[in-house]
Amino acid sequence: MFQIDIIEQCKNNDRRAQMALYKQYCQAMFYVAMRYLKNEDDAEDVLQESFIKAFQKIHQFKGEVSFGAWLKKIVIHKSIDFIKAKQLKTVELQESYMQVVEDGDWSVEDGVRVKQVLQAISDLPVKYRFVVQLFLVEGYDHGEISNILKITPTACRTRLLRGKGQLKELLKKKKYVTGS
């Protein structure tokens, strides 16, 4: 059965088609939620809420992007909303104390695993973590990130530049990066 047929059946509230779509995407979307939430129970909750929302809003899916990309956006929004709902307290950094780190010439050592880089990203302050993660891991551009996080494109670029600089320093401390 083609995916477009499954989606059309889901639009008609076909439970078997919904289960087929769920089985096809649940593991990948769980990993997306885990990158944000770092807790399996929370990620499972967000995953369930995301699928419920997706099936409720499936009539809005027009096929302009893949279903997976459409669903991934829902999972990311739900993950960020979950974190905000937990009222994650962050301390506002004083911009005047921060130094913009230019993107120098640096590369990751050959033996470094993706898991190590993702761990370093998760160690970034929340203000920078989401922008870096959405840009480097999820592949969103500045406009999309600005919309998702409800920040200006300029703030997005600034946070990405600073977040990448901090990421570089974290990786240097862990001896994963070479170069200046």
Rank of each mutant, 00 (worst) to 15 (best):
M1F: 06
I4K: 15
I4A: 15
D5W: 10
D5Q: 14
D5Y: 11
E8L: 11
K11N: 08
N13C: 08
N13T: 11
N13M: 04
D14E: 11
D14Q: 08
R16Y: 10
R16G: 07
A17C: 08
Q18L: 03
Q18I: 01
Q18C: 09
M19S: 10
M19N: 08
A20K: 12
Y22V: 05
Y22K: 03
K23Y: 10
Q24N: 08
Y25L: 11
A28F: 03
M29P: 01
M29R: 00
Y31L: 02
Y31Q: 12
V32N: 02
V32P: 01
A33K: 00
A33I: 00
A33V: 05
M34I: 10
Y36M: 07
L37K: 05
L37P: 05
N39P: 04
E40Y: 00
D45T: 01
D45C: 09
V46L: 06
V46H: 01
V46E: 04
L47T: 02
E49Y: 01
E49G: 14
E49A: 06
F55P: 00
Q56G: 10
I58N: 04
I58V: 15
K62D: 13
G63F: 07
G63I: 10
G63E: 13
E64V: 13
V65D: 07
A69I: 07
A69V: 11
W70L: 00
W70F: 08
K72W: 03
I74Y: 04
V75K: 00
I80N: 06
I80A: 05
D81C: 07
I83H: 04
K84W: 01
A85W: 00
K86H: 05
K86M: 09
K86Y: 00
K86P: 06
Q87A: 11
L88P: 02
E92G: 03
L93M: 11
L93G: 02
E95C: 00
E95Y: 14
S96D: 13
Y97P: 00
M98Q: 13
Q99V: 15
V100I: 15
V101W: 04
V101S: 05
E102W: 04
E102R: 09
E102Y: 01
E102T: 13
G104A: 12
G104T: 15
D105Q: 13
W106V: 15
W106L: 12
S107E: 14
S107C: 08
V108I: 15
D110Y: 12
G111K: 09
V112R: 02
R113T: 13
K115F: 03
K115R: 14
V117E: 03
V117W: 00
Q119W: 10
I121N: 05
I121G: 01
S122H: 12
D123W: 06
L124R: 04
P125V: 08
Y128S: 04
F130E: 13
V131K: 08
V131I: 14
Q133H: 08
Q133W: 07
F135W: 07
F135V: 03
F135I: 00
L136A: 11
V137E: 15
V137D: 14
V137I: 14
G139V: 14
Y140N: 09
Y140C: 11
D141T: 09
I145D: 05
S146E: 10
L149R: 02
T152K: 13
A155M: 11
A155I: 04
C156E: 14
R159Q: 13
R162I: 15
R162T: 12
G163P: 07
G163N: 04
G163H: 07
K164S: 12
K164Y: 12
G165A: 12
Q166A: 07
K168Q: 05
L170P: 01
L171W: 06
K174D: 09
K175G: 06
G179L: 01
